[in-house]
Simulated assay, not measured.
Amino acid sequence: MPATTRSRHRLRATSLSVSALIGLAAVVLGPAPAQAAECVGGMCGGVTASPHTALPVKYTTQWSTSPAVSGTLRAGQSAGGWWSGVDVDGFYVPQYCHASVSGWGSSSAGAGWHKIATNQQVTVNIQCA
């Protein structure tokens, strides 16, 4: 068998071996984990703690069924926002509290986590009874 034919056979066998390994890894490792929302173009979700908020505002950049706190904002501080490269996905209102929210579809929010869309910039003012 000529050298060029042997080289082609070796290359084909190597390609098949690599493809088989990739396929096996996909089966063993399973699907990739869900990714958090990301900025779209320059649009990134953002949150600002109102200068009048009674409590700091907790936020997440990893939205899920039970979001983890990514950071906490004191009155007047902000996170994320357009062209920042950081997409804030939600904010948290503590139990027994409510929040007035501007820049959002609703003007108030009860206790719990609240989703922020990638194109939204909200200001949150938490008040507790």
Rank of each mutant, 00 (worst) to 15 (best):
13 A>Y: 02
49 A>F: 08
50 S>N: 14
14 T>R: 14
101 V>N: 01
68 A>Y: 03
107 S>W: 08
1 M>A: 15
98 H>N: 15
15 S>E: 10
54 A>Q: 13
122 V>H: 02
59 Y>L: 06
124 V>K: 07
53 T>K: 06
116 I>D: 02
59 Y>S: 03
122 V>Q: 05
38 E>I: 09
100 S>K: 09
34 A>V: 13
89 D>S: 13
67 P>L: 13
100 S>Y: 08
125 N>L: 07
103 G>C: 00
52 H>K: 14
49 A>C: 13
107 S>P: 00
72 T>S: 11
61 T>I: 14
64 S>Q: 04
74 R>H: 12
91 F>N: 01
91 F>V: 01
65 T>F: 06
56 P>T: 11
22 I>N: 03
3 A>S: 15
46 G>D: 01
77 Q>G: 01
8 R>S: 11
70 S>R: 08
37 A>D: 13
43 M>D: 12
47 V>L: 03
78 S>W: 00
126 I>E: 05
52 H>C: 02
23 G>Q: 03
83 W>L: 11
117 A>G: 07
25 A>K: 00
49 A>Q: 06
76 G>V: 05
14 T>Y: 06
59 Y>Q: 08
90 G>F: 02
64 S>L: 02
95 Q>D: 15
115 K>T: 07
48 T>R: 05
126 I>F: 04
2 P>R: 14
66 S>E: 15
80 G>E: 03
7 S>C: 09
112 G>D: 09
48 T>E: 05
98 H>R: 14
24 L>M: 07
25 A>E: 02
65 T>I: 02
52 H>P: 00
30 G>D: 07
109 A>I: 01
121 Q>S: 12
16 L>V: 04
29 L>Y: 12
15 S>L: 15
20 A>R: 01
59 Y>I: 04
35 Q>I: 10
88 V>F: 10
111 A>S: 15
8 R>F: 11
51 P>D: 12
59 Y>N: 06
94 P>S: 01
19 S>G: 15
74 R>E: 10
47 V>Q: 02
73 L>N: 04
53 T>F: 04
37 A>W: 03
46 G>R: 01
113 W>N: 04
53 T>A: 08
100 S>W: 04
89 D>I: 04
6 R>M: 13
108 S>Q: 12
101 V>F: 00
41 G>Y: 11
33 P>D: 05
11 L>N: 12
3 A>D: 15
52 H>R: 14
88 V>W: 03
68 A>F: 06
42 G>Q: 15
36 A>E: 05
60 T>W: 03
119 N>G: 07
40 V>Q: 10
93 V>A: 03
102 S>H: 03
50 S>P: 12
95 Q>E: 15
41 G>Q: 10
116 I>K: 05
67 P>A: 13
101 V>Q: 00
91 F>A: 01
118 T>F: 08
15 S>N: 09
104 W>M: 07
105 G>W: 12
26 A>L: 11
30 G>Y: 06
47 V>P: 04
126 I>Q: 04
51 P>L: 11
106 S>G: 01
29 L>H: 13
68 A>R: 14
5 T>L: 14
12 R>S: 11
89 D>H: 08
13 A>V: 07
116 I>C: 06
129 A>G: 15
55 L>Y: 12
58 K>G: 05
29 L>G: 15
63 W>L: 09
49 A>E: 08
110 G>T: 13
94 P>V: 01
74 R>L: 10
3 A>Y: 13
61 T>W: 03
35 Q>S: 14
25 A>T: 08
101 V>Y: 00
